[in-house]
């Protein structure tokens, strides 16, 4: 009785979560010049229109490049930071951890305004590097949060065993530490990539007419027009996100996300 109720509620929640995606992708296929669901007829014309528009293509490229670069930089910074925080006791350790995590609780609009102010002072504005710096700041916590819990005492004793067997610190990192934090690193990197891929609030401060990301372009577009183009752009955004996950699954196996460590 109760379990049946739970099933119904769970199912309703899933439908509520999934339905917008269905509506969006459905509406992107409509032949009408306005958003319509269920779609009137089926056409890929809106996708064609979007891909025929160089500004959309360029925005997609910028978004992709930005998300990939930001994720790589965030991983390269977050992993050493996580090791420092988990393994060493030093002055300001707590402060460092909280500072690096703070973008999770700060509104990105506030952060964006602050970064713009700071960026203006040092001449780092409205350029790809300016976007990159901002994205690294907001996505680093995802990697840090996923990696930190994996640097356990048990993990530390593995590193000690490695040193005991004659491995230098860097060898230990690549042969023992990295394989052990892999699942956290991959899941953190996926969240980081997606957080960058969908970000509007922060990017908007540093984008220009020529240099813009897909979510910002969408955001600007819907302020003036609502037509199936935005559904097509959104549809493509979702497809890219899904593609990232599928590719990762093929490359390293998504079981690392749910894998319960011993």
């Amino acid at each position: 009785m109760v379990s049946a109720l739970i099933r119904i509620v769970s199912f309703a929640a899933l439908v509520y979560l999934a339905l917008p995606l269905v509506v969006l992708v459905g509406a992107s296929l409509t032949t009408t010049s306005f958003l319509a669901f269920p779609p009137q007829g089926v056409t890929l014309a809106w996708y064609g229109k979007m891909l025929g528009d160089p500004s959309y293509v360029s925005a997609f490229l910028v978004s992709t490049l930005l998300a990939v670069a930001a994720t790589i930089v965030a991983v390269l910074l977050a992993v050493p930071a996580a090791i420092a925080i988990a393994r060493y006791r030093f002055t300001g350790r707590g402060l460092l951890a909280e500072t690096l995590m703070s973008p999770l609780i700060l509104p990105h609009v506030v952060l964006g305004a602050a970064l713009l102010q700071y960026g203006s002072a040092i001449g780092l504005v409205r350029s790809f590097p300016a976007l990159l710096v901002g994205h690294v700041v907001i996505i680093m916590p995802f990697v840090l949060r996923a990696v930190l819990p994996q640097l356990t005492d048990e993990q530390k004793s593995l590193e000690e065993a490695s040193a005991d067997l004659g491995a230098r610190p860097l060898t230990t990192f690549f042969l023992v530490t990295l394989p052990q934090i892999r699942s956290g690193l991959v899941s953190g990197a996926i969240f980081a990539f997606i957080a960058s891929w969908i970000n509007v609030e922060l990017s908007i401060f540093n984008t220009t007419a020529e240099l813009t990301t897909i979510p910002v372009k969408l955001f600007n577009y819907v302020q003036y027009t609502i037509d199936p183009t935005i559904a097509a752009v959104s549809g493509l955004t979702i497809i890219v996100a899904a593609l990232v996950i599928v590719l990762l699954d093929l490359a390293i196996g998504l079981d690392v996300l749910s894998e319960r460590r011993r």
């Binding site: 004793s157 593995l158 000690e160 065993a161 490695s162 005991d164 004659g166 023992v176």
Partner: peptide, 20 residues
């Protein structure tokens, strides 16, 4: 000397076998 330069080895209490 750091551990990796000492000519001795240790059997750890929790064994510390590399699980991967």
């Amino acid at each position: 000397l750091p551990p990796y330069r000492r000519p001795l080895n240790t059997v750890f209490q929790n064994y510390a076998l590399f699980p991967h």
